[in-house]
Design a protein around this nucleic acid. Structure first.
Length: 595
DNA sequence: CCAACTCGGATCCGACGT
DNA sequence: ACGTCGGATCCGAGTTGG
């Protein structure tokens, strides 16, 4: 019952380009030069975010920003001289420890970042140990005070300071805390500020709902014209799709969801990137398209106001997968991966045609998810059908179809439906056969359900092939099972160095094992994104010359529609994850600019 | 309003290991 | 008697599109 005709096996993943290698793992000479040249220097400096690392001298800078000296010192002490991003990081950690212990189930249990020198990246530990050795500590001060001061510091101040440190003006931060309450998470506050900024001309136009207690806060974007988020200047209204004073809510999804263009479509969208968005490095960020209101607007704002490209993978394969991608890649001269994958169920799995009832109109699968139907459900369906006449009554049809759609069931026998096998999912998603083999079945489903659709991503990345004939250095965040890496490989793009951050151990194992089979470059896997400080980033950059591509998808849990509990948009853990992406990208940009 | 859809989760239960 | 693990079941919100 396999879709694998032998040509699948052989053609599909027999790509060229594994020629020589090893001349050098740490050479990306060619890379930098081919990148877009002119690069307007951005003006994000204003708030100090992402700029000059806070050496002792910058203590005053932060103090001047309204940040308590003790906090700065504490953060620097814990953090080393590690750059503004890490300070933000640290503050968020403080915040998490302070009011939301449940948030961090992370491996490091929410301790200060450097405490978590985890075993996975010890390769690196050796690399830059010398750099790490001499970070100048902040002025010495009494350790015992630290904890006390943290507790004593009023939560409100802490919140305000965190916001200020993230680049918000102090007055806005104070307002947000006042409105939402000091218990509100940072992300709620951020959202609140955004909502205010976009709510009409009056600065806090609708702050008539001042009353909203410590809970609401967000979710109240009223139409109005947008205000500037100063830290990212430009406001580049041009790239913003929605014409009317785009409020926070609607990042309207295109219909059909075909992105800027499709492999065969001739239409090409003109897109002008804000200066600060232009690489190097190129970056590529992915997330679910159907995120809660305002999330995409927020993400887009952080990512230099670039308009997201929303694409449904059903135009690339036989399964839907609605995702949004924010990237600064060129849009012209894209090319699709070969072989072109089948786009209908029957083409993908010919054997199902025989059993497919005429009253099941599905020709493509819905989004492949991380859970599969239980055997009992399948049995119920089978019974319902065998107890019916041939064209079953409407009621039965409806029931069966509902379940089939919900669980992506395929017809595999007379009156018999079944979930896709993991290897069938691999196929649909563009991975090599057996890519995820070797881990438990549920884990395979989970990993696959969270991954890229390779053909879709590869289509976007295909423009890189000619730009980097000698290969690329890639920073891959939240890599999962390596969708990005597989996409690059299938495009015939050589990966000289890949630094990959992925929390799940099984996923790291999968990527590593695939890498060892197919690649000759260097793969470094990091398990905890918190350990990827800008100091480390700089060390990597010095080592390998720079990153050509920063790619990542958000692990999405709470962003999808199916999750009712804490569907909090960019709150809590997710704010942390997205901010991690942003923080790291921003650090890479700053460091590469500086060097 | 209803229907469809969504990169899910909390809980319970049984199997298994200690 | 416990803890862990994976499977099964019941959840079900918010948004979109009709």
């Amino acid at each position: 019952m396999h879709w694998v005709s032998d040509n699948e096996d052989s053609d599909k993943f027999e790509w060229d380009s594994d020629g020589e290698e090893e001349e050098t793992s740490f050479n990306l000479a060619g890379a930098g030069s081919s990148a877009p040249a002119s690069r307007n220097i951005d003006v994000r400096v204003a708030n100090g975010y992402g700029k000059a690392g806070p050496s002792a001298s910058s203590v005053q800078e932060y103090v001047a920003m309204g940040f308590p000296e003790e906090m700065v010192l504490k953060a620097m002490k814990d953090n080393g001289d590690d750059g503004a991003e890490s300070l933000v990081e640290l503050l968020l950690t403080y915040k998490a420890l302070g009011n939301d212990p449940s948030v961090d189930n992370g491996s490091t249990s929410g301790c200060a970042p450097q405490a978590a020198a985890d075993s996975d990246d010890d390769i690196l530990e050796n690399w830059d140990s010398e750099d790490a050795a001499e970070r100048n500590k902040g002025p010495a001060f009494d350790e015992s005070d630290d904890e006390d001061f943290l507790r004593e510091m009023s939560q409100k101040d802490e919140k305000v300071d965190s916001l200020v440190n993230m680049g918000f003006p102090e007055d806005e931060a104070i307002m947000a805390v006042t409105r939402c309450g000091q218990d509100a998470s940072i992300a709620v506050l951020v959202d609140s500020i955004y909502a205010s900024q976009t709510a009409g001309d009056g600065y806090y136009g609708n702050s008539s709902d001042h009353e909203d207690n410590s809970y609401g806060g967000r979710k109240k974007g009223r139409p109005g014209n947008k205000r500037k988020r100063k830290s990212f200047g430009g406001q580049s209204q041009g790239s913003r799709g929605p014409l009317d004073g785009s409020n926070d809510e609607p990042m309207p999804l295109p219909n059909p969801m075909i992105g800027f263009n499709l492999p065969n479509g001739s239409m090409s969208v003109k897109r002008s990137l804000p200066g600060q968005a232009i690489g190097p490095p190129y970056f590529y960020y992915e997330n679910v398209a159907l995120a809660p209101k305002g999330v995409w607007t927020t993400i887009s704002r952080f990512l230099y106001d670039i308009q997201p490209e929303f694409v449904d993978s059903k135009f690339f394969c036989a399964a839907a997968r609605k995702r949004g991608y924010i990237h600064n890649l060129p849009l012209v001269n894209r090319s699709a991966l070969r072989p072109i994958p089948p786009k209908t169920i029957f083409e993908a799995f010919p054997r199902t045609k025989k059993w497919w009832p005429s009253w099941d109109p599905r020709r493509q699968f819905n989004c492949l998810q991380t859970c599969v139907a239980s055997a009992k459900l399948l049995e119920r369906i089978r019974l319902a059908l065998t107890n019916s006449v041939d064209p079953p009554p409407q009621r039965v049809q409806k029931y069966v179809l509902e379940e089939c759609r919900k669980w992506n069931l395929a017809w595999v026998g007379l009156n018999k439906v079944a979930p896709l096998e993991p290897d069938e999912m691999e196929f649909l998603l563009g991975f090599p056969k057996d890519h995820t083999r070797g881990i438990s079945r549920t884990e395979r489903y989970r990993s696959l359900g969270n991954s890229f659709q390779v053909d879709t991503v590869a289509y976007h990345l295909s423009v890189l092939k000619d730009m980097f004939p000698h290969g690329m250095n890639v920073l891959s965040l939240f890599s999962g099972i390596g969708g990005a890496e597989v996409a690059l490989h299938r495009l015939g793009i050589r990966m000289n160095n890949v630094i990959s951050v992925e929390k799940s151990e099984v996923n790291r194992t999968i990527l590593k094992s695939w890498w060892d089979q197919t690649q000759t470059g260097t793969l470094i896997e990091i398990s905890d994104v918190q350990t990827l400080t800008s100091e480390k980033i700089e060390s990597y950059i010095r080592r390998i010359g720079g990153f050509d591509l920063v790619i990542g998808g958000s692990p999405c849990n709470n962003l999808a529609g199916s999750n009712r509990h804490h569907r909090d948009g960019l709150e809590g853990e997710h704010s942390a994850l997205f901010y991690h992406y942003f923080r790291i990208l921003d650090a890479v940009k700053s460091i590469m600019e500086r060097l």
